[in-house]
């Protein structure tokens, strides 16, 4: 049994994506884009508290610049596809890397969030589809009026199962973001014994802000603080 030397060939770009780290970096970059979107999206949504005129004007503004709107949609779609492709490939790779599991499994010491990335991802993905059908295309049979997000949200969230599903999805999103956010820094090589703990705290703050901000809307509707 000899240990043979190995030569490394292949085009750099191919090699980059072939390596698990390459895929991880793709996930980090696309994840960051998606995070940026979610943040902007939330800031847009929070305008609901400023009344129907404000948020509907914002919606009309977005639709009046199709280049921005469709540009963003294309980028987001590409990011989502790459994010999901890479994650599925990594998931398969990782399953292959440990073909026999332990009789005695012990939970790794890391937080709950890191271990739930795998299924929080698909659930959030499914939710996003539902969310688009509900509030972008209006094709799930819930009350929908073109370019009137205020009305759509208020009427949509009055149905409590809809609100509940939104709230649950946002909890998962927050956890997904918490691990994803600090982990993307680690993945692209930013790690410092002094700053990484702060990064984790910052990631938690952002994750909570996004989760809580989004959840506040259905809660506000159900509680009757926001109404037609």
């Amino acid at each position: 049994m000899s240990t043979a030397g190995v030569s490394v060939r292949g085009e750099p770009a191919v090699r980059f994506y072939e390596a698990a780290i390459g895929k991880k970096i793709v996930m980090a970059v696309t994840g960051f884009i998606l995070f940026g979107y979610v943040l902007v999206h939330l800031l847009g949504n929070l305008q609901i508290y400023l009344g129907p005129e404000q948020i509907n004007a914002y919606a009309r503004f977005l639709h009046s610049t199709p280049l921005l709107l469709w540009g963003a949609r294309v980028v987001l779609l590409a990011a989502v596809i790459l994010h999901i492709t890479a994650s599925v490939q990594l998931w398969l790779l990782n399953r292959r890397a440990r073909p026999v599991s332990y009789v005695m499994e012990k939970d790794p010491p890391a937080g709950y969030a890191s271990r739930t990335m795998l299924w929080s991802g698909p659930i959030i993905g499914a939710f996003v589809v539902f969310h688009i059908l509900h509030l972008t295309t209006g094709s799930v049979g819930l009350p929908y009026r073109e370019l009137d997000p205020y009305h759509n949200m208020v009427y949509g969230f009055r149905i409590w199962p809809v609100s509940l599903s939104y709230i649950l999805a946002m909890v998962l999103l927050a956890m997904h973001l918490y691990h994803g956010l600090w982990s993307m820094f680690q993945t692209v090589g930013v790690h410092h014994p002094r700053y990484t703990p702060w990064l984790k705290r910052l990631a938690a703050a952002f994750a909570i802000f996004i989760g809580a901000g989004n959840i506040s809307i259905p809660v506000a509707v159900l509680a009757g603080w926001v109404r037609e």
Binding site: A20, A110, S183
Partner: peptide, 10 residues
């Protein structure tokens, strides 16, 4: 054939 790092810390 090693797997990828998912920043778990185990």
């Amino acid at each position: 054939g090693f797997g990828s790092c998912t920043n778990i810390g185990a």
